[in-house]
């Protein structure tokens, strides 16, 4: 397994937002983490990334514990994170936003023979080339999402954790983001995806985890979930 999370517990003050949460991603896999709002999906990603301090459990990446490591060390180990709010740097031009993603002193496989650089990123995201001198704040929502993904790819992650990438996007933009994620997966980057759009998630993922309140409810392959309307109703329908 590339990423193995077991019995993770995270608290926000008094509230126990992750209870014995477990999730695993194998090399080359796309894994979707689904569930209604407030179940702890984002907190799971943030706890792995070190942006939120988990209280107990194990987080192993490529067999080595990264539990409790600061975010920059988790990132250097090879995990890329695209947060829900995108969090591009509004005061920096697109070009500098991409430069910020470069991790110096890390020459990773990048999921293959072809590490991400400006040329490759611009090929996948031509809009960013056209906008390279514009400030991040002038981009549309969809363009900001593209930039956030591209910025993380510049660091050549082996595992991309991405939180609600299609939230608030038009159907056209949603399809573009979906296609980009499919391309990224094709070149060998593993993806842990939090997504509310079931159609997008099912079209990308190999396996799914469904979260109930603060803990894992169900796990299975896409085919199993597809054949099980009762599980879908219990965890996903509002």
């Amino acid at each position: 397994m590339l990423l193995e999370v077991e019995n993770l517990n995270t608290y926000y003050g008094e509230s126990h937002v992750l209870q014995d949460m477990s999730v695993a991603v194998d090399a080359g896999e796309v894994v979707a983490l689904l569930g209604r709002n407030g179940m702890g999906k984002s907190t799971t990603l943030k706890s792995i990334m070190g942006l939120v301090k988990p209280n107990s459990g194990t987080i192993k990446y490529k067999g080595t514990s990264i539990f409790g490591h600061p975010p920059y060390r988790v990132a250097k180990a090879g995990i890329g994170f695209v947060p829900e709010e995108r969090r591009i740097f509004p005061n920096l031009p697109v070009l500098d936003n991409l430069r910020m993603g470069i991790k110096h002193g890390r020459h990773s496989s990048g999921g293959g023979r072809n590490p991400w650089d400006f040329e490759r990123v611009y090929k996948h995201f031509p809009i960013l080339k056209d906008r390279s001198n514009q400030k991040g704040s002038t981009l549309s929502g969809g363009e900001q999402q593209m930039l956030a993904i591209a910025r993380t790819l510049m660091g050549n992650p082996d595992l991309l954790m991405i939180d609600e990438p299609t939230e608030g996007l038009s159907p056209v933009m949603t399809k573009e983001v979906r296609d980009v994620l499919a391309e990224i997966s094709e070149v060998g980057v593993s993806i842990l995806l939090v997504e509310h759009n079931l159609k997008v998630a099912m079209s990308l993922a190999d396996r799914v985890y469904l979260m109930g309140k603060a803990h894992l409810g169900y796990t299975g392959t896409i085919e199993e979930l597809d054949a099980n309307p009762e599980i879908r109703a219990r965890y996903l329908e509002v």
Binding site: L51, K76, P83, F89, N91, L92, M100, K103, R106, G155
Partner: peptide
């Protein structure tokens, strides 16, 4: 560049491996 980015969002800079 890192300082200016961190002025707007230090946590994100951290999560990018800096």
């Amino acid at each position: 560049m890192v300082v200016r980015a961190a002025v707007s969002d230090a946590d994100m800079v951290n999560a990018l491996g800096i």
